[in-house]
Computed example of a mutant assay.
Amino acid sequence: MGRRLVINDLRVQSISHHDGHRSFTIVWPEGTVHEPADRFLRRHERSGTQRTYAYLLVDHLRWLEREALALEAVSLRDLATTWPRWVRSGAAPTGSPGEPTDPPSTLTR
């Protein structure tokens, strides 16, 4: 799976640290950190799952943007009814059926 440049959309950003480890956050199109997402991802620093969480979270945040929903406006009940429909339809959260996303290679969908 090849990498692709993401322009004008939320994206996952890899951060290389001086001690050699990498962490991941989500940034807005202009490059500023998405603070609520970063707070969540920092709790999983060095966990081995932070990258996967970042890619799943960026899909969710893109969906919120596309649907013009505030992060605080969506409840777990909303997600519990919406996500199963996506799974059944084969639709990616960021697009329509048949429009693939680029999950990290460590993520099995």
Rank of each mutant, 00 (worst) to 15 (best):
M1P: 12
G2D: 15
G2K: 12
V6Y: 02
L10K: 03
Q13S: 14
I15V: 15
H18R: 15
D19H: 13
G20D: 00
H21K: 08
R22K: 10
F24C: 02
P29E: 04
G31S: 09
G31T: 09
T32A: 06
E35S: 14
P36Y: 06
A37T: 05
L41D: 00
R42H: 01
R42D: 08
H44A: 06
R46I: 02
R46H: 10
G48I: 05
Q50H: 12
R51I: 00
Y53P: 00
Y53D: 05
A54W: 00
Y55T: 08
L56N: 13
L61K: 02
R62W: 01
R62D: 00
W63Q: 04
L64Q: 02
R66M: 05
L71P: 02
E72C: 01
E72W: 06
V74F: 07
R77T: 14
R77M: 10
D78L: 04
L79G: 12
L79T: 06
A80G: 09
T81R: 14
T81D: 15
T82G: 04
W83K: 04
R85D: 06
W86L: 15
R88I: 11
S89K: 04
S89C: 07
A92M: 06
T94V: 13
T94M: 10
T94R: 07
S96W: 08
S96E: 15
S96D: 12
P97I: 07
E99L: 04
D102F: 09
T106Q: 14
L107M: 15
T108C: 10
T108I: 13
R109T: 05
